[in-house]
């Protein structure tokens, strides 16, 4: 979109945009290019600069079967979290959209999880799921030892996924409700005249019409569950038991900051970056083209 009326001024726009550009260059572009540099070089022990190693760092992580386990686990984590969170939020939004009396109250509470810090939710859910505490842990009284996420890896992963999905409900709900409210009322009325009951209208009329939002949220949720799980995992399981909740971000942190393997961590960062970029590109092109209101 081009503006017909604008200002001409040689230096002023640069002064206005300068600070933002400077920050972006220093804290975004420089580190990103630095990551590329590290990914293709190997740091010499005891200083002495980096030597160029080409694709060796990537080859090393791709050869490592443990890395593939982590990638597979992250994919599983992201998919289940996304589907779970979106399904709950969509259900709530569809019923909230009926605007029955008192819905406003429900709506404002559904948004709350958006405000909560992942580690805070992590601590709360850790207590809810603690085997020794009196909530989920209570089933251990009936069947001793059946629930213990500190030992059972699948239970630990499930616990983190439930918490991550819960955190996403607020954000997803806002978008689903907004999309549903954009559907013209006349369409639902026409459907009703044709004899479609409310539930039928939800499935055959509303859902297809909000397809673009569904795809948008799908990508956003996948990105956030691939990248934004550190706070949860660190407070809930620390990647354990026996690495069974270690996902890509956690491994990068661990190899980089605990193992001081900058080159390996950089190569892993690049892989994760490419994944996120790919998802964003799908979002911008594929989705915009394929999903139409018609």
């Amino acid at each position: 979109m081009e503006r017909r009326a604008f200002y001409r001024n040689g230096t002023l726009p640069w002064l206005l945009i300068g600070p933002q550009l400077l920050l972006v260059l220093v804290f975004f572009y420089w580190p990103t290019s630095q990551a590329l540099y590290w990914a293709f070089t190997l740091e010499q022990p005891w200083g002495g600069g980096n030597t160029w190693v080409g694709w060796d760092n990537f080859a090393a992580i791709f050869r490592d079967s443990e890395y593939w386990t982590v990638v597979g686990r992250s994919t599983f984590y992201a998919t289940v979290t996304t589907l779970l969170s979106m399904a709950v939020a969509l259900t709530l939004a569809v019923f909230a959209d009926r605007a029955l009396k008192g819905t406003k109250l429900f709506q404002s509470v559904y948004v709350w999880p958006y405000a909560i810090a992942a580690p805070a939710a992590g601590v709360a859910f850790r207590f809810i799921f603690a085997p020794e505490s009196g909530l989920i842990g209570a089933i251990n009284q009936m069947w001793p030892g059946i629930w213990n996420p500190a030992i059972n890896g699948w239970q630990a992963l499930g616990m983190v996924i439930v918490c991550h999905a819960w955190l996403g409900i607020g954000y997803n709900f806002i978008f689903f409700l907004a999309a549903l409210q954009m559907i013209p009322k006349s369409l639902s009325e026409a459907g009703a005249m044709d004899g479609a009951r409310p539930f039928r209208r939800m499935l055959d009329l509303q859902l297809p019409l909000i397809a673009p939002t569904v795809f948008f949220l799908l990508i956003m949720n996948l990105i956030s569950s691939f990248t934004d799980s550190f706070g949860l995992i660190d407070t809930m399981t620390e990647g354990g038991p026996f690495g069974s909740t270690e996902v890509m971000v956690y491994k990068i942190y661990f190899d980089g900051f605990k193992g001081f393997d900058y080159s390996g961590a950089a190569a892993q960062s690049i892989v994760l970056m490419l994944l996120v970029i790919a998802l964003t590109i799908i979002q911008f092109t594929w989705v915009e083209k394929r999903v139409h209101y018609h």
């Binding site: 580190p31 990103t32 990551a35 590290w38 990248t227 971000v249 980089g256 960062s269 994760l272 970056m273």
Partner: peptide
Amino acid sequence: TLMLPLEVRIVPTYAI
């Protein structure tokens, strides 16, 4: 910059 969240470029950002 919308494309890459801070978490995925955490190691080099730390260095800067």
